[in-house]
């Protein structure tokens, strides 16, 4: 237990080190989530648009 709190204290620098790591993780995670959400939304929109068009025209965007 004492080891653990020593580890988190980081020789007195814990209050600088942990925010640094957390902030980096937070920024990268948020960017990742936003990008994935964007991708999913765009791909599903594309699918519905193609489904609407199918039958009456050849999909020239796919060539």
């Amino acid at each position: 237990m004492e080891n653990l709190s020593d580890f988190f204290a980081m020789g007195g620098y814990g209050s600088y080190i942990w925010p640094a790591y957390l902030l980096a993780a937070l920024i990268l995670t948020v960017l990742l989530i936003l990008s994935l959400r964007d991708l999913r939304r765009n791909e599903s929109t594309l699918q519905t648009l193609r489904a609407e068009r199918r039958g009456d025209a050849i999909d020239e965007t796919d060539t």
């Binding site: 980081m10 020789g11 007195g12 620098y13 814990g14 600088y16 080190i17 640094a20 790591y21 980096a24």
Partner: peptide, 10 residues
């Protein structure tokens, strides 16, 4: 000291 560990993300 330990503060150098910030280097590994910075």
């Amino acid at each position: 000291g330990e503060s150098v560990r910030i280097m590994y993300v910075h």
